[in-house]
Design a protein around this nucleic acid. Structure first.
Lengths: 146, 146
DNA sequence: TACCTTTACTTGCAAATTGCAAGTGCAAAC
DNA sequence: GTTTGCACTTGCAATTTGCAAGTAAAGGTA
């Protein structure tokens, strides 16, 4: 473990560049997708996703996402050996990004059928689909942790 | 140069996963940002961006983006040694993704001030800011190539 | 109380990717 | 015909990724 969490040097002050320093890899947004649209919350559940993330990569990404305050880790009160990961508000605010990316690919590749449930609603009403998902996650977070 | 353009194995059929296979790195979206919001169109102009992309990385990303039909390369008719890169419609359709990412970071890091021009409009009216930028790029493309 | 299982990681190492510096090739300007 | 500008390519070291195996600690079971 080196300097994954605190990246000392910033490439520029462009928001996009800064965002990509936190999210610009092949795995981070997939982890967030699972926290947004599935019930997966534990390490092993997240590891079980279709794409098959390697365990060391998952660990390093979770640490980085937590370091960037995009997710937060809680220990499961009903099972001391389980940890549970939840999106923070900062993470919930990435819902539009994830939905826009999914939608983009669904337009240009018809095989992108997995998340079609979300896409059907999105195509019908972009704005309210986004805010519905965000609202739901917010409520869930409040229920689970306050 | 190996198998950058055609990635044989797909991790899953999730649209997000497929999108990240094309865009999930620290540079691709920055290149697209310049094509979206600046006048930069040539290799050397793109290389001159603040973040300092290495020349071999720029070349490999441009080839991959072109292979994925997100950008297209034209030779400059007024200068035979210049090439110019333009967004395709598929690339233009990524405007929402880029703007959402910029906006997200501008909310959570006040130093993300560089693209504040776009962000001011975005905060005022998200939907029409997105469609204005997309429309402008579409017009530009038609003017330049038809 | 000892042992097995589950859960969440860590470690070691090979392979792939990235990034820096220098070099190449060709069109155009001088 | 020599130099300059532009778009890359090449070589190599350093970093990151990905696979496989190992560890540690909580909880269940006999």
């Amino acid at each position: 473990m080196k300097k994954q969490i605190v990246n000392v040097e910033r490439r520029s002050d462009c928001g996009l560049s800064m965002a990509l320093e936190a999210l610009g890899d092949r795995w981070s947004l997939l982890i967030l997708r699972d926290l947004m649209f599935t019930e997966k919350r534990s390490y092993s559940e997240l590891q079980s996703s279709e794409e098959g993330i390697a365990t060391n990569i998952l660990a390093s990404r979770l640490a980085a996402l937590e370091g960037n305050q995009i997710i937060r880790k809680y220990s499961d009160i009903t099972n001391g050996r389980r940890s549970l990961y939840y999106l923070t508000q900062k993470g919930i605010d990435l819902v539009p990004v994830v939905l826009e990316l999914m939608h983009w690919m669904s337009v240009y590749n018809p095989q992108a059928a997995v998340c079609s449930k979300q896409m059907k609603a999105f195509r019908k009403d972009r704005v309210s689909t986004i805010s519905n998902y965000m609202e739901q996650l917010k409520i869930q977070h409040l229920e689970d942790h306050e």
